[in-house]
């Protein structure tokens, strides 16, 4: 997750240290005390106290001298996701699209300039998922992220781009802001966003933004797969139209969702 500078009011330093520790563990998946102490610039003994405390509350698990995230976060995450309306509204459609395409399909929402996958389903082509629910991606190099940028107001896009470095991950990653803005224009006109090996070599992704009738950005649904399966026709035509069918249904269901609940 991005590291934010606390720019207003007083914050509690120990909590910030704890969050930095947890972020390092999340990023590296499994880390020892020495490495953590170096990463956050605190003494080994201090870091050890943090880790012991977090372990005591099931926030961390320890095995072979290294620490991993604990299941308490799944409880928090499960609830955080459960109360996202778009999760409730789109879940079954994401499942359906995964069955139709056989690929990995994700429901992504935008938070603080990043995309967070709040749900994903895998079709028959995948033996195991390539990523996990809750994983965070940058906007400029992912299909869902670019779909978000294309759906947000120009002011908001300028604000996000001003504070973001367009990191290049592959030859295809867009690292020039003007090129990215041009691409957003195209995404707006065709209502489909592509990631053509821009985040990971060998992986392509297609995404369509979900917006409410009043124009509010609710999220995006993406379909990703390896280049040998997401070949040109499938990548540029078949999957985009399947995605648009599903997103259209989610949008209509969203418009009428209050009715089904309350009438």
């Amino acid at each position: 997750m991005n590291e934010r500078q606390a720019d207003t009011g007083k914050t509690i330093q120990s909590i910030e240290t704890m969050i930095r520790l947890l972020d390092v563990i999340r990023r590296r998946e499994s880390v020892g005390v020495t490495e953590l102490a170096n990463e956050v610039g605190r003494s080994k003994s201090t870091v050890h106290h943090y880790l012991r405390t977090l372990e005591l509350y099931d926030c961390l698990e320890k095995s072979d001298g290294t620490y991993q995230l604990g299941l308490r976060f799944l409880t928090y995450g499960g609830q955080a996701r459960f109360r996202q309306r778009i999760y409730q509204l789109a879940k079954s459609d994401v499942d359906q699209l995964a069955a139709e395409t056989g690929e990995q399909v994700r429901l992504v929402v935008e938070r603080g300039g990043h995309g967070i996958a709040i749900y994903q389903a895998e079709g028959e082509h995948l033996d195991y998922p390539r990523s996990y629910v809750g994983s965070v991606d940058e906007l400029h190099c992912t299909a869902a992220g670019k779909a978000f940028l294309a759906a947000l107001s120009p002011d908001r896009v300028a604000e996000l781009l001003a504070e973001t470095e367009l990191v290049g991950y592959t030859e295809n990653t867009i690292t020039d802001k003007d090129v990215l803005l041009e691409e957003l224009e195209q995404i707006r006109s065709r209502e489909v966003a592509y990631d053509d090996e821009e985040r990971t070599e060998g992986i392509r992704c297609v995404a369509v933004a979900i917006t409410s009738r009043s124009g509010e950005l609710l999220g995006a649904i993406s379909v990703s797969g390896p280049t040998d399966r997401l070949t040109d026709e499938r990548f540029r035509s078949k999957i985009p139209s399947q995605l648009q069918n599903i997103v259209g249904v989610v949008e209509i269901n969203t418009t009428y969702s209050d009715w089904a609940d309350t009438v």
Binding site: I252, Y256, D258, W259, A260, T262, V263
Partner: peptide, 27 residues
């Protein structure tokens, strides 16, 4: 009204439903 339940509470003599078909039933 934004929601048909408000319409049903007001003084109407009858109702016509012309929503997208999937929503005929709840209304």
């Amino acid at each position: 009204y934004e929601n048909p339940s408000e319409l049903f509470e007001s003084d109407v003599d009858a109702v016509i439903i012309s929503t997208p078909t999937k929503f005929h039933e709840p209304v």
